[in-house]
Write a protein that binds this DNA or RNA. Structure first.
Length: 816
RNA sequence: GCGGCGGUGCCCAAAUCGGUAAAGGGAGCGGCCUCAAAAGCCGCCGCGCGCAAGCGCUUGUGGGUUCGAGUCCCACCCGCCGCACCA
């Protein structure tokens, strides 16, 4: 018998699939589109071509492959495309390091990745491949940007950034250490720069509320998104500056504690602060504090002890007319709420710490409804049952009612209203980098910000010599490209030189896959409405927030624009776990990398595909075991020998019934388990174990009349995991093209003919086991159980007071 | 602090509605085949008592519910992940 040789078999079948265009799925004709229930869209997060494929990709795309194969063989039209998220910083940085143009290194990486993907034998529809850096793609990214712009959902505004005057660049918060630039040590300046934003905050409520439309998403991803959006209910309360009468609104979730406000705090960046302190004795001290705060990183601000400076001014509490001192302190964040707070030290830990430090009044205004009154001047934590005290006419009200009553009282007098606060900020999408999608905007001295007309798209990314970041976009150096005419007045104008965040590119790629070669529009609505939403999305947990939130936002906007007929892009989401080796993520610096190429070369793609899913539950992190490939590789060898031995027997004629033997039943049991595990439970490791067991059973009983049938079943069931060897064995069994062959179905009648073990207990302790047909009637089962000698011994001839029967599982006699 | 997830033999793991643990794989041990090795095949492989049939114990800890708990409830211990000065 010929030995199992994965290299030969895999090369053979990969070229057959290529020649037969096996996995190309054309779009349905108009009349077929009504039959949407027969479609499945299996999508995996597209790779970043900043290097080659790693084991994380192997896991991701093998998972998708198994789902796609099973669905296809169960009669669905399956869309299973692939593409490249080619723009972005990692690709650009890699290119800078290598000294080659990002396009060159990106396209070289894409070629290498595609070669690896074909070598893995993934059933991808290569006719739909998309790459975000190509003009035929980013033309439509720009087109979509313009639709957002027309709706007021893309806008430009000044935003504070950290600026290093030596490196001439914007720094991320993480790059600021003790107020100095991480690289050159220069003192960092706070700057305000014009940036582009998407108004995602307008969709905060829908992003939260429409989570209900998601069929099945991991709870932790939903939780992360909820936390990220951070919706909280409370009130906006208008304080006024004593003397000037200037309004200082605050947002609070605890309007019930309004009577306990004993001071007021502004963020250092608050726009009114400067005017407030101008000409006062405190001016110099406040300015110094603001200057220092501006230089601190966010991380540093979060860790330091609370401090601040008195401004010398007072605010009037609208609820009781009290004048309370206004402080400036950097524990108040300009980004959240209004950048100003009312401080209630008795009931807020941060305010409490601050008040203690500076000797400010601590006034309790809520107290537990029952039990002793809290010690004066102490901090009183929020509890279930509390009532208002020291709160004028509101005293005595339970806190929740107090909240409503005080808010209503304020609203009646125009002093405040109910309000909702969000943690979510608008999406800053502009980047001062080269390797990204140009923003299709022209700045005209006469007309202002002017969109590039649709018919002039794409705005091509210019070729530049020097794309190293220098604080302004490298595009600004392409003077010829920047100089243009205003589309509106035809006067001299300049192009926008910022590029878009790559998350914009990846927020709609799954729509382009549906209609990838359309050059009149980004997609045909009829076609996306047929394929979308994605039935199964698979990818890493690291995208739980940004990508998955942005893509949801995009689809909601597109729905509002009438461009798509659905409101959520991904019905089901599966987040895979990471692969570790020696307890750490595989990385070059740790020297613990195992590459797919080396494994494929040694064991073949099928063994690797099996191994990576056999490792454990796919949604959990797993430890790579160097000896583990031995197991799946040995299994494939055993499968090979066992099936070839059966292939020598005559194939059953058409319609010939399968002999009812233990092996036949084992095969049907395996079919039922594998199908249920993959389709319903989304478990991928247990089906492999089940097929391994079946093969072991066949090897032990090769002369069973149903052995050949069982062997065929094993091949058929393992095909989604190990498609090459399965295809080869299928051919040697005398059949054609397993990937088009229907998925096997378990015969319920045969399954029922199995005997099952029934545990017989007396008072919960096992006394005997019976083997009976699963459909044995309850009465008969009890009689059989009672007849057991061992049960008799424990019943001592007496009667059971109660008998519990679980059909097919157990009979329990309970005495006394 | 808030939220989510997890803890089962030496290791990775299975156990789906609570039904009476450890499927499958790895590593290990013994044997067969062989001049030898590789490959392959057979057997053993949680703990204790027993010649054996068997009996008892065992899912991080302690308690509870139940005829019956790895699974449900309460408390605690340990670990991982996300968010966090969010007013």
């Amino acid at each position: 018998m010929q030995r199992y040789d994965p290299q030969t078999i895999e090369a053979k079948w990969q070229s057959v699939w290529e020649a037969e265009q096996a996995f190309v799925v054309p779009n349905p004709a108009p009349e077929e589109r009504a039959r949407r229930e027969r479609k499945t869209y299996v999508l995996e997060m597209l790779p970043y071509p900043s290097g080659e494929l790693h084991m994380g990709h192997v896991k991701n795309y093998t998972l998708g492959d198994v789902v796609a194969h099973v669905r296809r063989r169960r009669g669905y039209q399956v869309l299973r495309p692939m593409g490249y998220d080619a723009f972005g910083l990692p690709a650009e940085n890699a290119a800078i390091k290598e000294g080659v143009h990002p396009r060159v290194s990106t396209e070289r990486n894409i070629a290498a990745i595609e070669r690896q993907m074909r070598r893995m034998g993934w059933a991808i529809d290569w006719s739909r491949v998309v790459s975000t850096h190509r003009p035929d793609y980013y033309r439509w990214t720009q087109w979509l940007f313009l639709r957002f712009f027309e709706r007021g959902l893309a806008y430009r505004k000044e935003a504070p950034v950290k600026w290093c005057p030596v490196d001439q660049t914007v720094l991320a918060n993480e790059q600021v250490i003790d107020g100095r630039c991480e690289r050159c040590g220069a003192e960092v300046e706070a700057r305000s720069l014009e940036q582009w934003f998407f108004r995602i905050t307008d969709y905060a409520d829908r992003l939260l509320d429409e989570m209900e439309l998601l069929e099945e998403w991991p709870e932790r991803v939903l939780t992360m998104q909820r936390n990220w959006i951070g919706r909280s209910h409370g009130a906006r309360v208008r304080f006024r500056v004593q003397g000037s009468g200037e309004e200082l609104p605050v947002f609070t979730t605890r309007p019930d504690t309004l009577f306990g406000a004993t001071f007021f705090v502004l963020a250092p960046e608050h726009p009114l602060l400067e005017a407030l302190v101008e000409g006062t004795e405190q001016e110099a001290a406040v300015r110094e504090y603001v200057r220092q705060a501006a230089a601190r990183s966010t991380a540093e601000r979060e860790q330091r002890e609370k401090d601040g400076v008195f401004t010398g001014r007072y605010a009037i509490n609208p609820v009781n007319g009290e004048a309370i001192p206004i402080w400036v302190a950097d524990y108040v964040l300009m980004e959240y709420g209004t950048g100003a707070i009312m401080a209630v030290p008795a009931h807020d830990e941060r305010d409490y710490a601050f008040a203690r430090r500076y000797g400010l009044e601590i006034r309790q205004v809520v107290a537990p409804a029952d039990g002793a009154a809290p010690e004066e001047g102490a901090f009183v934590a929020h509890t279930e049952n509390e009532v208002l005290v020291n709160s004028g006419s509101f005293s005595g009200l339970p806190a929740p009612e107090g909240k409503r009553a005080i808010t209503a009282w304020l609203a009646e007098r125009g002093l405040g209203e109910e309000a909702i606060g969000y943690r979510l900020r608008d999406w800053l999408l502009s980047r001062q980098r080269y390797w990204g999608c140009p923003i299709p905007i022209v700045h005209c001295p006469a007309c202002g910000i002017v969109p590039v007309p649709d018919e002039e798209l794409p705005v091509l990314l210019p070729e530049v010599e020097d794309y190293v970041p220098r604080g302004r976009s490298p595009l600004a150096a392409a003077e010829e490209w920047v100089r243009t005419h205003c589309p509106r007045c035809r006067g001299e104008a300049r192009r926008e030189t910022d590029t878009m965040d790559t998350f914009v590119d990846s927020s709609w790629y799954f729509l382009r896959y549906c209609d990838p070669r359309n050059d009149r529009e980004p997609w045909s609505r009829e076609i996306v409405d047929y394929w979308m939403p994605v039935n199964q999305y698979i990818g890493g947990i690291e995208h739980a927030i940004l990508h998955l939130l942005y893509a949801r936002f995009f689809v909601k906007v597109l729905n509002d624009l009438g461009l798509v007929g659905f409101r959520e892009p991904f019905a089901r989401l599966f987040t895979q776990g990471m692969i570790y080796r020696f307890g750490a993520k595989m990385s070059k610096s740790k020297g613990n990398v195992v590459t797919p190429d080396e494994i494929v070369e040694r064991y073949g793609a099928d063994a690797l595909r099996l191994y990576i899913l056999f490792l454990g539950p796919a949604d959990e992190d797993a430890e790579w075991q160097d000896t583990g490939l031995e197991g799946t590789s040995r299994f494939l060898g055993r499968l090979w020998r066992t099936v070839l031995a059966q292939a020598e027997k005559p194939a059953p004629g058409p319609g010939e019934p399968t002999p009812d033997t233990p092996l036949a039943r084992a095969a049907h049991r395996t079919i039922a388990k594998v199908t249920d595990d993959i389709e319903r439970r989304f478990a991928f490791n247990t089906p492999i174990a089940a097929v391994m067991e079946l093969v072991n059973e066949i090897a032990r009983a090769p002369d069973d009349p149903a052995a050949r049938f069982a062997a065929e079943t094993a091949v058929s069931l393992i095909q989604p995991y190990a498609p090459h060897v399965a295809e080869e064995l299928w051919e040697r069994l005398g059949y054609e093209r397993l990937w088009r062959h229907p998925w096997p179905e378990a015969d319920p009648a045969l399954l029922e003919r199995e005997t099952v073990e029934v545990v017989v207990q007396v008072n919960g302790r096992i006394r005997d086991r019976l083997h009976v047909p699963p459909d044995t009637p309850e009465q008969e089962l009890v009689a059989l159980a009672r007849a057991s000698e061992r049960v008799q011994a424990y019943l001592n001839g007496g009667e059971a007071a109660r008998t519990i029967v679980v059909p097919g599982k157990l009979v329990n006699f309970v005495t006394g």
